[in-house]
């Protein structure tokens, strides 16, 4: 099993340790804002355990994925809100 996994975050490639969550990749890409709230506020992970839904990003085109619960897989395409 490789030591690093490469995924893309907003189109840019990023390598993370094997087993790292998608939230790690987003943070390593220097992004603090994972999503915008319903009134447009910047939001990021809060609970780290999959219950707050603030860490949601789009993964491979599927919206509302909880990034703190999903390990990175090679080639994953992650998109945060702008």
């Amino acid at each position: 099993m490789p030591d690093t996994v490469t995924i893309t975050v907003n189109g840019a490639g990023i390598g993370v340790p094997a087993g790292a969550m998608v939230s790690t990749a987003v943070a390593m890409a220097g992004i603090a804002m994972f999503r915008r709230s319903v009134t447009g506020e910047p939001r990021g992970p809060l609970c780290g355990m999959g219950i707050c839904f603030e860490c949601r990003v789009s993964i491979n085109g599927q919206a509302h994925q909880r990034s703190c619960q999903i390990p990175c897989e090679p080639g994953m395409e992650v998109r945060t809100d702008d």
């Binding site: 993370v16 340790p17 087993g19 790292a20 969550m21 939230s23 790690t24 943070a27 390593m28 603090a32 804002m33 994972f34 709230s37 506020e41 910047p42 939001r43 990021g44 992970p45 809060l46 609970c47 780290g48 355990m49 703190c68």
Partner: peptide, 21 residues
Amino acid sequence: WTLPNVMGAGGLQALAKGALP
């Protein structure tokens, strides 16, 4: 409290265990 990088205490620890730098 809703600003990005305000997290739970267990929350930040959980994320760090998921390799958050």
